[in-house]
Design a protein around this nucleic acid. Structure first.
Length: 220
DNA sequence: CCTGGGATTTTCT
DNA sequence: GAAAATCCCAGGA
């Protein structure tokens, strides 16, 4: 059925924006005990270099940010707002701090387990219209499962324990492509990044990328 | 429809 | 001691 091929290290060892766009349509695979969770990446953000004021790396190499300075293809996972995790993938080359944040995923396999991991029950059937969306775009349960960077970490059981994890050798967390699926440049929309009002000039950069008309993205 | 606030704890000043 | 690459819910119009 699925002809998923793992992404090699040299996929990550490229320009960050190329990787951020290239990850759209690729698959995140998480194996936890006997469960396998799979989803298609539909939204990303680029955090590029020591000068990008939105990037943690703009304040230099610290205990937390050292992963961003490490080799491409590592997972950079950090705690945010005291209660959530965000999942990034290190890009470029050693000593150049850059990464791609995974902001939204379209669940493909293991959806029942994701619901359990997210701990939201029957109220998932509640009617919800997200901000920035028209009232006609009502989201189903599945669409709200992984449409945000912290939500997808909960659903895929990604936390600090996987910080620094190697995605091109790991058996439990990695990325793959379906060689039959190709994303055309015309399917990709760019926009401002979310939640970085402190970033000065850099808050206006269109360094967020998502698949046009995909209902699983976090916002327009 | 929209706005605002609370949760919760690591990280850096 | 302040802020944080978020999410969820309550309340008012």
């Amino acid at each position: 059925m699925s002809s998923l091929v793992r992404l090699p290290k040299n996929f990550y060892q490229q320009n960050t924006f190329k990787v951020a766009k290239g990850l759209l349509g690729k698959y995140l695979i998480r194996k936890d005990k006997k469960q396998i969770l799979i989803g298609k990446i539909v939204e990303t953000e680029a955090y590029y270099g020591p000068f990008d004021l939105a990037s943690h790396a703009s304040r230099g190499k610290t205990e937390r940010t050292k992963i961003m300075f490490d080799q491409p293809g590592l997972a950079y996972i950090y705690l945010i707002y005291g209660m959530y995790y965000c999942f990034n993938i290190v890009t470029e080359s050693q000593n150049f701090p850059a990464a791609v944040l995974i902001r939204a995923i379209e669940p493909t396999a293991g959806i029942k387990q994701m619901v359990r991991n997210r701990k939201c029950h029957p109220e998932l059937s509640r009617r919800v219209t997200p901000p920035h969306c028209h009232s006609s775009t009502e989201l189903t349960m599945t669409m709200r499962l992984t449409n945000g960077p912290a939500k997808l970490c909960q659903a895929f059981k990604i936390d600090k324990k996987l910080n620094g994890h190697n995605l091109f050798t790991s058996k439990i967390l990695y990325l793959a492509e379906n060689t039959k699926e190709k994303i055309k440049p015309s399917q990709i929309q760019s926009a401002k990044r979310i939640g970085i009002d402190y970033a000065g000039q850099y808050k206006h950069k269109p360094w967020r990328f998502y698949l046009k008309n995909n209902p699983f993205i976090s916002c327009k």
